[in-house]
Amino acid sequence: MKIKNSLLLCLILIYSTNVYAYIDPGSGSALITAILGFFAAIIYSFKKFFYNLKNKFKSESKSNSKEG
């Protein structure tokens, strides 16, 4: 019985090393970049929006002070 079990275990181990030879674990990375890119784009756009807004205020206050 013991021998049978250990033979079975050996077989499982041998086969399990072969199982992934054709699977690319990186095949999910397109999905990952899509997910991360989506959130990154939101943050990026917000940052740009506020940056532009800040610049606008700055230039306005500058031109105001010049006029004043």
Partner: peptide, 14 residues
């Protein structure tokens, strides 16, 4: 999966 340029640039930026 289609990706927009802005999303890749944003990802690279982060």
């Amino acid at each position: 999966i289609k990706q927009s340029r802005i999303s890749i640039i944003a990802l690279v930026d982060s």
